[in-house]
Write a protein that binds this DNA or RNA. Sequence first.
RNA 1: CGCGGGGUGGAGCAGUUAGGCAGCUCGUCGGGCUCAUAAUCCGAAGGUCGCAGGUUCGAAUCCUGCCCCCGCACCCA
Length: 541
Amino acid sequence: MTNKFYITTPIYYPSGDWHIGHCYTTVNCDALARFYRLKGRDVFFLTGTDEHGLKIETVAKAEGVTPKDLVDKRAKGLSELFTRLNISNDIFWRTTDKAHKRQVEYIFTKLFDRGEIYKDKYEGLYCVPCESYWTERQAENKVCPDCKRELSEKSEEAYFFRLSKYKERLLDLYKARPEFLQPMTRQKEMVGNYLKAETEDLRDLCVSRAGLEWGIRVPFDKEQTIYVWIDALFNYMTALGYFECEAGAGDNSVGVQRDNSASDNAASATASKDFTNLKRFWSGEVVHMVAKEIVRFHAIIWPAMLMALDLPLPKRVFGHGWLLMGDDKMSKSKGNVACPDYLIGQYGVDAVRHFLLAEYTFGSDGAYTEERLIKRINTDLANNLGNLVSRTFAMAKQYFGGKVEKLEKEKAADKAFIKEINGLLGAVETRLSAMEIDKAVSEITQLGDKAAKYIDDNKPWVLAKDQKTKGRLSVVLYNVLECIRVVGVLLQAFLPQTADKIFARFDNLPDNLKTFGSAKYGLLPVGIATLEGDTLFARIK
RNA sequence: CGCGGGGUGGAGCAGUUAGGCAGCUCGUCGGGCUCAUAAUCCGAAGGUCGCAGGUUCGAAUCCUGCCCCCGCACCCA
């Protein structure tokens, strides 16, 4: 297993407001990134925005601002939202960044030079007011599905990518590497819809538009603008700087020049300045996390384009499910309930993170409701985790004056509980490697349940009544404190703020007792003081 | 026959790949405990696993047919 781990969210399209769905994908990626960092792997975590296209132009016009002003504002908003959510991305990459644009021009040219892109006529049903093409299937009775006006036949020049010739190779890819596209049901869908022998051939893909203003021009044909496929998908590589490198090494024919002040967008992080990142990470484990509706782009178009350039393919594309927003009534009359800022303000960062990580079977759809969020917080965080910490530290204070004690050895009866503590890290890791992020989190809350039962079985309040059982009492409390510490160690990957709050209950807990290597029983030193602390999570309502 | 997903106790779900006593969380009811955030622990009630048929010693799981809901088919995490 390679030590390199490169994980990406899709780059989000800033045409509308940021919502809970964007947070869902990003928080889950963040947990994976944090976990593997703590595991000691070399991690790079990308997120960002896909900022070109007609829709941005239209929205900007409606708001009376320039497209650039619009995307700057929206990208800043998203970047700040992710900061509030404690997202640990290494880069916030934007497709309007100069370094990206130069590389996209270079890539487009290279594909053209190799004969993978050719110029032809695009023909179809066109809606003039909406400025968009529709297929006959989409447009029943030749009426625009959007505005319901009549469509007209239109034909214009455009560039096409030879997607059709990769059908067999894509099928082979799925067969040879079933882990490439997960869950399996997404593979079924891709094969059923686009790749199996009976379906009509994959059509070549139109990769440029003639009338589009807001985008990257085809370098050798300024009438044409590079369309989303190449512009957006290649962000995963341009952010790492590979093509910048390659172009800087010789080919200046498309005006690509290496420039160390590459990041000209305020919200972009500086990581793109390190052009060695692609060599470092693209050869390692590359994981693209996407929601199910863009699986096709990532599991068909993207690998085909990489094949066209003889580049290595990512290790895995994972298409997760959707948070369904119920009926339209909710989104209209109570639209703000799914607003991330409202939720964070109302319930706190880690409560929102926990909900997004734990509530839904990762990979399947689920219905979003605020009631489910509240219930999830109360059950897992307030009743289970928060109360466990609260009662345990109360006893430590009451019975031992706020000091970790262990006056005798643990007994055989403690073995099962200790085994659970020692098994937590492995159990969580197994779940994550299967992309069962919700189940990974529930491994942690389940250990919390076991601790509650362990307390109840051993009845420390009874042991405390008799001086003769004080030694035993100290062991019981020690075991639970160790359980809490190990839970804190694991929570660093999922609920970092909560992990810190837990650690803060131990006076000057040494850093080496926070590492994954210390996620096992028996390391907490006797004599360390236990401190008072705020309620971890208050019950709601 | 476009493709895919779903239909499991009051609610939300897991289990279906390789058939073997129907499981989890929440809710409800009864009991215990008192260290704790009306918390926690124990126990109980509650399901013909969408319908019909088939294969099998045995089917939620495999096969056939049917009904209902949802998504996708270059707007969407």
